[in-house]
Design a protein around this nucleic acid. Structure first.
Length: 285
DNA sequence: CCCCAGTCCTGCGGGC
DNA sequence: TGCCCGCAGGACTGGG
C-alpha cells in the first residue's frame, strides 16, 4: 500500500526521465476493469504530446510530472498501483504508458492490480482544486514540531486515526502511522487534544526517523509482494517494522510484551502495550 | 466540526 | 477439488 516512502521511492526511480519529451500516451486494453484515466486518451494525448517533463515531484501519496505547458500528469497508486520504468509484474494489469524520447528512459508505466488508482492530466487550476492546500495538508517531512502540533492539538480524534487524515498532513498511511506511534511511545487511542507538547515533539521526531529510514530502504513490500520500486524490485523496510502485522510477536524494543492488534476506523492498528502505555506510568518511589 | 459505514476493485487464503 | 467469504486499506461520499 504505497504511502509516502513508497511513493517517494517511485519518484526517485523515474528521475532520469527529467527533461525527456513525451512522444505518446497509451491506455492498454486489459481483461480487468479499466482504471480512471482523465481526460480521455484523445485529449490526454493531444495535450501531453511534445511536452517536456520539467519537474518530477511528490504530493502526499502521488507522483507528479510537471510539463512545460504548466499542465501536470498525476499518478495516484492508492492500494496497489506502481510507477515503473522496468517490465511490469503482469501484463494483465498494465494500465497506462507514457512514451518518452531524448533521455535514458523510453517509457514510464502505471501498473495497478486492483485498479483503485488513477492517472490524471491536470491544468494548473485543476491541480489547485484537487491537490491544493484545501485538500491536502503539508508534507510531514517538511514541517516542524510546532506546525505538526498546531494541526492536531484541538482535535478530539484518536491520534492514530488523525494521522491518516490527508487534509491535516499528506503522506502517512495505515502502516507508517502504527510504526511512528510505536517509535514515539504514544498509545494509538490517545486523543490528540490530550497530548502535551513533549508528546507532539516525540511524534514529530519519530515521523522523520521512520519515514526517512523507510525511504532509505526503498519502502515496505508486504507478504502479498505487491509493492515494487520503479525497477520492479521489492523494498526492504518490512524487515525493520517494529509493530505492523506483528500481532502476537514479542516486541523487539522492550522484549517484555507482545504486539497487539486493534481496529480503529475499520483499519488495523498495531502497538506494544509496554512501549505505548495508555496512561502515563505512575512515578516510582 | 467529527465520525461511521459503504463503495470502488482484485487476488489470496481459510473454512467447509 | 471447488466454492464462498472475508480481508487488505487508499480516497471518497452520504448521512447522522
Amino acid at each position: 500500500m504505497p504511502e509516502l516512502p513508497e511513493v517517494e521511492t517511485m519518484r526517485r526511480g523515474i528521475l532520469p526521465a527529467l527533461g525527456s519529451r513525451i512522444v505518446d500516451i497509451q491506455k492498454p486494453r486489459c481483461r480487468v476493469k479499466p482504471i480512471e484515466v482523465t481526460p480521455p486518451p484523445a485529449e490526454f494525448r493531444r495535450r501531453a504530446k511534445g511536452q517536456s517533463i520539467c519537474a518530477i515531484q511528490r504530493v502526499g501519496k502521488r507522483v507528479v510530472l510537471r510539463l512545460d505547458s504548466d499542465d501536470t500528469i498525476v499518478f495516484e497508486p492508492r492500494m496497489t498501483g506502481l510507477v515503473l520504468v522496468a517490465d511490469p509484474p503482469t501484463l494483465a494489469h498494465l494500465r497506462f504508458r507514457l512514451d518518452l524520447e531524448g533521455g535514458p528512459i523510453s517509457q514510464i508505466l502505471f501498473w495497478d492490480r486492483r485498479g483503485l488508482g488513477n492517472v490524471r492530466l491536470l491544468s494548473p487550476r485543476q491541480f489547485d482544486q484537487q491537490l491544493g492546500p484545501d485538500k491536502l495538508g503539508p508534507d510531514p517531512l517538511e514541517i516542524d514540531a510546532d506546525e505538526l502540533r498546531d494541526r492536531f492539538k484541538t482535535s478530539r480524534r484518536e491520534v492514530k486515526t488523525a494521522l491518516l487524515d490527508q487534509r491535516a498532513i499528506a503522506g502517512i498511511g495505515n502502516l507508517y502511522a502504527s510504526e511512528i506511534l510505536h517509535r514515539a511511545g504514544i498509545h494509538p487511542q490517545k486523543h490528540c487534544n490530550r497530548l502535551n507538547v513533549e508528546a507532539w515533539n516525540r511524534i514529530h521526531a519519530a515521523t522523520l526517523e521512520v519515514l526517512n529510514e523507510a525511504i532509505r530502504y526503498e519502502g515496505s513490500t508486504l507478504s502479498d509482494g505487491t509493492y515494487r520500486n520503479a525497477q520492479n524490485d521489492p523494498g526492504g523496510y518490512q524487515h525493520h517494522h517494529r509493530v505492523y502485522a506483528r500481532a502476537g510477536q514479542l516486541c523487539s524494543t522492550c522484549h517484555d510484551q507482545t504486539i497487539v492488534r486493534i481496529v480503529q476506523s475499520q483499519r488495523s492498528t498495531f502497538y506494544c502495550p509496554a512501549c505505548q502505555p495508555k496512561r502515563r506510568r505512575a512515578r516510582l518511589t
